[in-house]
Amino acid sequence: MALLEVKDLHVRVEEREILHGLTLTVNKGEVHAIMGPNGSGKSTLSHVIAGKPGYQVTDGEILFKGEDLLAMAPDERAAKGVFLAFQYPVEIPGVATMTFLRTALNAQRKARGESELSTPDFLKKVREVAARLSIPQDMLRRGVNVGFSGGEKKRNEVLQMALFEPSLCILDEMDSGLDIDALRVAADGVNALRSPERAMVVITHYQRLLDYIVPDVVHVMSKGRVVKSGGKDLALELEASGYAQFEDAAA
């Protein structure tokens, strides 16, 4: 059984259809890249998978481990193993990062019927992961993402990914706003999480990120559909020839 199956998905935002019958299958152990010009609907797809309100699914379905994902609240999806690393992680003043991480992790464990992690075990785990991602301890004491640089926010997303150990990671434009060093740190963090039990969907506008996170499958999205799929060479092809050739295919 595929880990994620998106079938003929039609999605509207405020009466305008954004996704026009999108189909995508991701198996565990695979890394998929979704590339496409701005406005092609990449973030919309990631939001609908994560359960963000404000989108109407008018047709199609999303199965996750064979279950109807669209019937679940966002927190249930998270507990089942769906993780979206946001393109724009939000700042939450007044909620200490450490408190947030612990509450979220324990909420997921509770939903799965697992026991809460003890404080020492939790701290040990966070420290390990944080050290790997060069996240200083004082960042964890601050409000969630408050005063973090762009790179720090993205690393905080990767930190959560490592901590929650989801089975599906969707990374939305992880490279946006990052310089090459910051990108490398974040990509290393992601690569460390690659595993036969886990799948990743890497959404990006540029080929650059895929030099660091090498995909198994590349999809090209245009105007709300997947218009072409192929191996990792497809990304290089796109880099050379641009997206223009696909504009017609999607029309």
């Binding site: 309100p53 966002p74 927190d75 939450i92 909420a107 997921q108 929650f164």
Partner: peptide, 18 residues
Amino acid sequence: LLFYLMARGLPEVDAQAM
């Protein structure tokens, strides 16, 4: 913010409370 917390596994009431 509410959606961010829920996407990280917090049930709605807990996310609101936070």
